Computed example of a mutant assay.
Amino acid sequence: MDPRLAALTDAPFTYAEVGATRSGELPAGVHVARRRAVVGRGDDAFDRAVAAVFDWAPQRNAGLRVRASGPASEPGAVVLMTAGLPPLGLRIPCRVVWSQTSGDRQGYAYGTLPGHPESGEESFVVSRDGADVVFEMVAFSRLATRAARLGGPVSRVLQAVALTRYTGAVRRAARG
């Protein structure tokens, strides 16, 4: 395993509410971002959307470089994403908190690790609503680094852009 990923395997999460995106009981006093979109129709679209989500496709297609210790379907998998040009790129370390790999609602959430500009959790879920395939993201966060706090509104705009790109990636995957 990549030593950078191995070093994050036992790193503590940077927030106390680990798993909150699964329970739906989000903490008070945090920024919450939600996106929900129909991305396709039918069984094949559902299967393709789920496969894309578990293979880190939303993050890759949003322009992030992704190094992961395993698929997003494995709780405990570490992912180190990088935005921007190396070696000055922004490091975004996370670890999978929970995953649901069967049924009509599948997905996962990852939580932030030390060095992430935010502190919180983000979930990526594909579900069925009749014949429609729905992709939903829920994120809660606090700005964690000095740079993120200084860039407050810009940080939130960048998060919104990422959520839009994630949705586009899953929509393209669902359509084949």
Results as ranks from 00 to 15, higher is better:
127 S>A: 14
134 V>E: 10
96 V>F: 12
117 P>N: 08
103 G>I: 12
139 A>F: 01
79 V>I: 03
99 S>F: 05
123 S>Q: 04
104 D>G: 11
89 G>Y: 10
120 G>Y: 06
104 D>V: 07
107 G>W: 01
84 G>C: 06
143 L>Y: 05
92 I>E: 04
90 L>Q: 15
131 A>L: 04
143 L>I: 03
101 T>K: 11
143 L>F: 10
95 R>D: 11
123 S>F: 03
133 V>Q: 06
113 L>N: 03
109 A>K: 03
125 V>G: 09
125 V>A: 09
96 V>N: 03
118 E>D: 14
78 V>Y: 04
97 V>D: 13
118 E>C: 05
92 I>F: 15
109 A>C: 11
136 E>T: 06
116 H>W: 05
127 S>N: 05
141 S>P: 00
140 F>W: 07
85 L>K: 12
102 S>I: 00
100 Q>G: 12
126 V>G: 02
98 W>D: 13
121 E>M: 08
122 E>L: 13
103 G>P: 15
108 Y>C: 11
112 T>F: 13
80 L>S: 06
141 S>D: 00
122 E>N: 13
128 R>D: 04
118 E>Q: 09
80 L>H: 05
98 W>T: 10
131 A>K: 06
131 A>N: 11
129 D>M: 08
138 V>G: 00
108 Y>N: 03
139 A>G: 07
115 G>D: 12
107 G>L: 04
110 Y>I: 10
88 L>P: 00
85 L>F: 14
125 V>R: 11
92 I>L: 15
86 P>W: 15
82 T>F: 01
140 F>M: 00
142 R>V: 07
86 P>M: 12
138 V>P: 01
88 L>T: 05
138 V>C: 06
91 R>C: 03
105 R>E: 15
123 S>T: 04
97 V>M: 04
110 Y>V: 02
101 T>V: 15
108 Y>G: 01
138 V>I: 13
104 D>F: 03
123 S>Y: 02
111 G>I: 11
124 F>M: 14
82 T>M: 14
108 Y>L: 15
130 G>Y: 10
77 A>Y: 01
105 R>Y: 08
110 Y>D: 12
122 E>I: 14
130 G>S: 08
117 P>R: 07
91 R>W: 04
136 E>F: 00
96 V>A: 10
121 E>T: 07
103 G>Y: 14
97 V>C: 11
133 V>K: 09
88 L>W: 14
93 P>Y: 10
115 G>I: 10
102 S>F: 05
80 L>V: 05
141 S>G: 00
142 R>D: 05
94 C>L: 12
85 L>P: 13
114 P>R: 09
83 A>M: 10
79 V>L: 11
